[in-house]
């Protein structure tokens, strides 16, 4: 036993000397780490409890069809092309399409929208989709189809106008 005491004193001295001389700590983090054992974890139980989310979080874009004036300005400004309007070939009625999987949540459409409240950025983040939704290819097709439908409608309309011009009486 007579050896322990001088030994431990020596070691503690050595540690202190090191600490003073080289400005390095050897054991401080060690004991703090042990102390952490008795502290509450900083983890939030996320799926069970909600996390912090500001009220004005830039989440999904919500579209109110009743207010829309169909100016398509949002479609033009949207950088990734997450908004597209398709047009019914027969009656020319436009439909708004939006993909949260393309959207970059930049709020530019909301800022550009001339009609207050038509496009709103909700605080709700997007939800994951699965393979069945096949969001990418579906959206690519939808996008192409919508553009085509508009072209077709325009051509149709032109044809009708031309026809109307040709025989204005009918």
């Amino acid at each position: 036993m007579q050896v322990y005491l001088p030994l431990s004193v020596l070691m503690i001295r050595a540690c202190h000397a090191l600490q003073d001389k080289f400005q390095i700590e050897i054991m401080k983090t060690f004991f703090k780490t042990i102390g952490n054992l008795f502290k509450k974890p900083a983890t939030i139980p996320f799926p069970a409890a909600p996390t912090y989310k500001p009220d004005d979080y830039r989440g999904l874009i919500v579209f109110d069809e009743s207010l829309c004036i169909w100016c398509r300005r949002c479609e033009t400004v949207c950088p990734p092309g997450a908004i597209v309007f398709s047009q019914n070939i027969t009656d020319g009625k436009q439909t708004y399409h939006y993909s949260p999987y393309v959207c970059i949540y930049c709020q530019e459409c909301v800022r550009t929208c001339p009609k207050q409240g038509c496009l709103i950025q909700s605080a709700e983040p997007g939800h994951p989709a699965t393979k069945e939704h096949d969001v990418n290819n579906v959206w690519n097709k939808l996008f192409a189809d919508s553009l085509e439908s508009r072209v077709t409608y325009a051509a149709e309309k032109k044809k009708q106008q031309a026809a109307a011009k040709a025989n204005p009486q009918s």
Binding site: Y52, P54, D56, Y57, R58, I104, Y105, C106, Q107, R111
Partner: peptide
């Protein structure tokens, strides 16, 4: 991150500066 989220509305892509000023 929380502060940035509160200031800009997103944790990483802030889109805060726009031409002519700031967005929020």
């Amino acid at each position: 991150m929380e502060l940035l989220e509160a200031v800009c509305g997103n944790r990483i892509q802030y889109d805060f500066s726009i031409i002519g000023g700031v967005a929020r």
